[in-house]
């Protein structure tokens, strides 16, 4: 009768169980067969998205400087409110302050993971709320080099992924992954190449390839700040269009997390209150 070892073995198992489950979930494929680049890519995207869970809501301001090839500048100023929705895409409200002729115009988006987003535009001159098509994801946002697609949070389900390599990015080490839109018609791109650091999974660079697979735009992101000791948010985003030589610098500021925002502020009634 060798009773004594039984206890330690079981307790070790109990202790290890969560780790095993976790490593089975994350690492199982590597035990059975080497993880495919697609699996690694999906894992990174899923983990990056999971790290942003629970932020609740936030508000911020966006200031854009649009530059053409000759260096002429034009400005955009807007306020952004975002509400986290569990099990679906987030809800967001953008209100324009500049240019002044569109002041008070507001865009309400109910993003969805699977189906097309719902969008309503508020036109203050007519006090009209207009449901608009959300299939214009590849169109320019306010004449800038950003498209609606570039500015919306990339829902994990909207892409398939492929891990390419690790490489240094500044002082950090980045994973380099490709992502491909699931709904090819809904995207302006055939693929995107994304650089994310291994420590915090923050995105530092994205290269956009158009439908003919030529390198159209490059986005570089910097000045990250951390909020509530957890959530990283970009401070500066620079989009360069290699085809036209135009660029847009988007500066985020005045981040505030877990404000008094409620679900009701993201309704059509709330949209009419935006100003």
């Amino acid at each position: 009768m060798r009773m004594i070892p039984a206890y330690p073995v079981r307790s070790v198992l109990v202790l290890l169980a969560p780790c095993l489950v976790l490593s089975l979930w994350l690492g199982m494929p590597s035990l059975v067969h080497p993880a495919t680049p697609e699996e690694i890519g999906l894992k990174i995207a899923t983990e990056a998205s999971a790290r942003d869970d629970g932020f609740g809501n936030f508000t911020a301001t966006q200031a854009m400087v649009l530059r053409n090839k000759q260096g002429q500048e034009s400005r955009r100023q807007l306020r952004v409110k975002v509400l986290e929705v569990t099990d679906d895409g987030d809800k967001s409200l953008m209100v324009f302050d500049e240019p002044r002729d569109v002041k008070g115009t507001a865009l309400l988006t109910h993003a969805h993971k699977q189906e097309a987003d719902d969008q309503w535009l508020y036109l203050p001159a007519l006090k009209r709320v207009k449901r608009i098509s959300s299939s214009n994801r590849s169109g320019s946002f306010m004449g800038s080099e950003f498209s609606y697609e570039d500015l919306s949070a990339p829902e994990v389900e909207k892409y398939t992924y492929r891990y390419l390599r690790d490489e240094p990015c500044g002082k950090l080490t980045c994973t380099v992954c490709e992502r491909f839109p699931v709904d090819k018609k809904a995207s302006g791109y055939s693929r995107q190449v994304v650089w994310q650091d291994k420590d915090e999974l923050r995105t530092w660079k994205v290269e956009y390839y158009d439908r003919k697979d030529s390198h159209l735009k490059t986005l570089t992101i910097g000045n990250y700040t951390q909020h509530l000791d957890r959530y990283w948010r970009a401070g500066e985003m620079t989009m360069v269009n290699h085809l036209t030589g135009k660029s847009t610098v988007l500066n985020w500021a005045a981040y505030q997390f877990r404000t008094k925002l409620k679900e009701r502020d993201f309704s059509k009634t709330g949209l009419k209150r935006a100003r």
């Binding site: 097309a116 449901r131 608009i132 098509s133 959300s134 299939s135």
Partner: peptide, 9 residues
């Protein structure tokens, strides 16, 4: 009433 289906309204 408005029905919004893709690029159709």
């Amino acid at each position: 009433a408005q029905l919004t289906l893709g690029a159709w309204l």
